[in-house]
């Protein structure tokens, strides 16, 4: 039972990271029709910015506050980077979806290579507050504390995004744009501002996933973004492109399946995910047309 609980919480922790990457990916695809291969690069940029900021913030003696501050800087950098990518690279190719995808492919290759060039191929250690790696007992299971943080962060982002989409004017524009972008412009709304906004939101959420993955694995390496991105793609497809709630549910399915199958069947969890995806697609290829945010 305690093993099962540990697996479940750990699976949910993984799911949290998948969700943070997938939610932005899904919103961007839903609104703009762009399959953003650079989303992993946003994650990498945010994670490295956090690591870098932390190394420069030695003046703050409290590890916790140092880490929190560094993370905030990392999220900011990731968000700004993503917004710039939209403004400079995506916007000029408006409505040319294939070219936009190609540009994000080039960008992801270049960003990862640049990070490798500057900080090397080896993982960089994340100096996180020690309490994050202590455990809390739940019944008979000892759960590492960072799992709670990951789950809480994802829940906060989920609630925040839902509220943003539901109650703000930009949220309304994004939800409408996911359905029918052209009609939104025909109401006199400059939908491009919403494009930059979803990129920025996606960038911040991906950076948060980068920071949390740094906590989870205790380190960050240049390839982290790409490897999480693949699973996020799968999550987005299963959950329905453009649907935040769908992404959340699909992340949980993927995270838990991966953990359980890995534990009970000598590590073919990742393969089982691909199988789940294939089954979902064969059962309802229409899930890819998902529209409501």
């Amino acid at each position: 039972m305690s093993t099962f609980l540990l697996l479940t919480i750990t699976g949910l922790g993984l799911a949290a990271m998948y969700f943070l990457v997938a939610s932005g990916l899904s919103l961007i695809y839903g609104l703009m029709g762009v399959l953003n291969f650079a989303h992993g690069a946003f994650l990498t940029v945010g994670a490295y910015a956090t690591w870098f900021a932390e190394s420069k913030l030695g003046g703050i003696s409290s590890l916790t506050w140092r880490f929190v501050l560094a993370s905030l800087i990392g999220l900011l950098v990731g968000g700004i980077f993503a917004a710039l990518v939209e403004l400079v690279l995506i916007r000029p190719l408006y409505l040319r979806h294939i070219e936009q995808v190609l540009v994000t492919v080039g960008l992801s290759l270049a960003t990862v290579a640049l990070v490798q060039g500057i900080w090397g191929n080896d993982p960089r250690l994340y100096a996180v507050p020690p309490w994050l790696h202590e455990t809390t007992s739940v019944g008979s299971a000892s759960i590492p504390n960072d799992r709670w943080i990951e789950i809480a962060a994802a829940l906060l982002v989920l609630a925040g995004l839902k509220a943003f989409l539901r109650y703000t004017r930009y949220g309304l524009i994004i939800r409408a744009g996911v359905e029918n972008r052209a009609m939104v412009t025909a109401l006199g709304i400059d939908v491009r501002k919403a494009f930059t906004l979803v990129f920025a939101i996606g960038g911040v959420a991906a950076s948060l996933a980068g920071v949390l993955s740094g906590v989870y694995f205790s380190e960050v390496d240049p390839g982290r973004g790409t490897s999480l991105l693949i699973f996020a793609f799968i999550v987005v497809v299963i959950g329905g492109l453009g649907s935040i709630t769908g992404s959340a549910v699909a992340s949980v399915v993927v995270g838990l399946t991966q953990q359980y199958v890995n534990y009970y069947s000598s590590g073919i969890g990742d393969l089982s995910i691909v199988l789940v995806l294939a089954l979902v697609l064969l059962a309802r290829p229409a899930s890819l047309e998902g529209r409501t945010a």
Partner: peptide, 14 residues
């Protein structure tokens, strides 16, 4: 970094 150069070149070509 060859991949950086190629990635940027690729974007320019697109």
């Amino acid at each position: 970094q060859p991949l950086f150069v190629l990635g940027v070149l690729f974007i320019l070509v697109v």
